[in-house]
Computed example of a mutant assay.
Amino acid sequence: MKKKGRIIFNSRFLQNLTILERSEFLQYCHRRKYKKNEYIYYKGDPGTGMYFIEEGKVELILEVESDQDQSPYSYTIEAPESFGALSIGYEIRRISNVKCLTDCTLLGFFKPDFETLKNRHPVIAVKFMETLAMVAMKQLEIVTNELKRQVGAKHALSLQFESLMNPNNNDELL
């Protein structure tokens, strides 16, 4: 319970929930143990849920085939951070590999858990989705600003507009 408390009180992802709501939310999480060097998921896997790191360190590894520099980019995270959150609200495939750098204990929160949370505690589910939307919008803002810097504002913004207006993309957006 002490380890869960670290997540309850320190998780940036759960900040907009009250302490009681955080405790309730974590009741829907599943504890999973992984060994050092074990992969949690791979790039291209269907996104089925998110993970909170209770104990240990993981490495998110992004391999970009079209990049001239073929070496992967990696990012190390540890408790009480989380990863994979966008898979809860969106039908997306994983964009990275995630590997345990140490023995790890993770709390998994999966799509069926979210459905149960929605039915039993809709207020918590709405707050969770608000956070998810905020994270997605912040990521969009960062990527858009970098794209503006790389290819120009007109082209970057036209890509966003076209993705909304193109009838072939609308099915994916709905």
Rank of each mutant, 00 (worst) to 15 (best):
L60D: 05
L60S: 05
L60F: 08
L60C: 09
L60A: 07
I61S: 04
I61E: 04
I61C: 04
L62W: 11
L62K: 13
E63H: 14
E63Q: 12
E63M: 10
E63S: 15
E63W: 08
V64A: 11
E65Q: 11
E65T: 11
E65M: 07
S66G: 13
S66F: 13
S66W: 12
S66E: 15
S66R: 11
S66Q: 11
S66T: 12
D67M: 07
D67I: 05
Q68D: 15
Q68N: 15
Q68K: 13
D69W: 07
D69V: 09
Q70V: 11
Q70S: 15
Q70H: 14
S71E: 13
S71H: 13
S71G: 07
S71T: 14
P72Y: 07
P72W: 04
Y73D: 10
Y73R: 14
Y73W: 14
Y73N: 12
S74F: 14
S74A: 09
S74R: 09
S74T: 14
Y75R: 10
Y75N: 13
T76F: 09
T76A: 09
T76I: 15
T76Q: 12
T76Y: 08
T76L: 09
I77R: 02
I77Y: 05
E78G: 11
E78D: 13
E78Y: 10
A79H: 06
A79C: 05
A79P: 02
A79D: 05
P80Y: 10
P80W: 07
P80L: 06
E81R: 07
S82R: 03
S82L: 04
S82Q: 11
S82A: 14
F83A: 01
F83W: 02
G84D: 02
G84E: 03
G84R: 01
G84S: 00
A85G: 07
A85L: 05
A85K: 07
A85V: 06
L86H: 03
L86I: 04
S87D: 08
I88Y: 10
I88T: 09
I88V: 05
I88R: 04
I88M: 06
I88F: 09
G89R: 01
G89W: 03
Y90V: 08
E91A: 10
E91H: 11
E91G: 10
E91M: 08
I92E: 03
R93A: 11
R93S: 12
R93T: 10
R94C: 05
R94D: 07
R94Y: 08
I95Q: 15
I95H: 15
I95F: 13
I95A: 15
I95L: 14
S96C: 13
S96G: 06
S96A: 15
S96R: 08
S96Q: 11
N97A: 12
N97F: 11
N97S: 14
N97P: 07
V98G: 00
V98P: 00
K99P: 03
K99H: 04
K99R: 12
C100Q: 01
C100S: 02
C100I: 00
L101T: 06
L101E: 06
T102R: 04
T102A: 05
D103S: 09
D103F: 04
D103I: 02
D103A: 08
C104P: 00
C104L: 01
C104V: 02
C104Q: 01
C104F: 03
C104E: 02
T105R: 09
T105C: 10
T105H: 11
T105F: 08
T105G: 06
L106F: 04
L107A: 06
L107P: 03
L107G: 04
G108S: 09
G108P: 01
G108L: 00
G108M: 01
F109V: 00
F109T: 00
F109K: 00
